[in-house]
Simulated scan of single mutants.
Amino acid sequence: MAEKDLKYYLGKVRYLANKHMFIKQKITSRDLERFSTLVDSNGKALIVFSEFDHAKIFDDYDEMPHHLFETDKYLEYFDNYPSEAYDSVICMGLLEHMKDPSKLIEKCHSALKPDGKVYIAASSVFSVHRGPENYFHVTHYGAEQLMNKFDWSHIDINGSCGPFRTLGILCQRILLQSEINIIFKPFLELLAWSLPLLDFVVKKQYDGHRRDEDRVIDSMMPSNIWIIGTK
Results as ranks from 00 to 15, higher is better:
M1E: 09
A2C: 09
A2D: 15
A2W: 05
K4E: 14
D5A: 13
K7V: 06
G11T: 05
K12V: 11
V13P: 09
N18H: 10
I27R: 03
S29P: 02
R34N: 12
R34P: 01
S41K: 00
N42L: 01
L46N: 01
S50D: 04
E51K: 14
D53G: 06
K56P: 01
I57R: 00
D60S: 12
D62G: 02
P65W: 05
H67E: 12
H67K: 13
F69T: 15
E70T: 05
A85G: 05
I90R: 01
C91G: 13
C91H: 05
M92V: 00
E96R: 00
H97S: 13
M98Q: 14
D100L: 10
K103P: 02
K107G: 07
S110V: 07
K113L: 06
P114H: 02
P114E: 09
G116K: 01
V118K: 00
Y119K: 01
Y119R: 00
S123L: 11
S127V: 12
H129R: 07
G131N: 04
N134L: 02
F136L: 04
H137W: 11
H137K: 07
T139I: 06
Y141N: 14
K149S: 11
D151L: 10
W152V: 03
S153W: 01
I157L: 03
C161P: 08
C161E: 13
G162P: 15
F164T: 08
T166A: 10
L170Y: 04
Q172E: 15
I174M: 08
L176P: 03
Q177M: 05
F184P: 02
L190A: 13
D199S: 10
Y206I: 13
Y206S: 05
R211A: 11
V216I: 15
M220A: 08
P222H: 04
S223A: 12
I228R: 07
G229S: 08
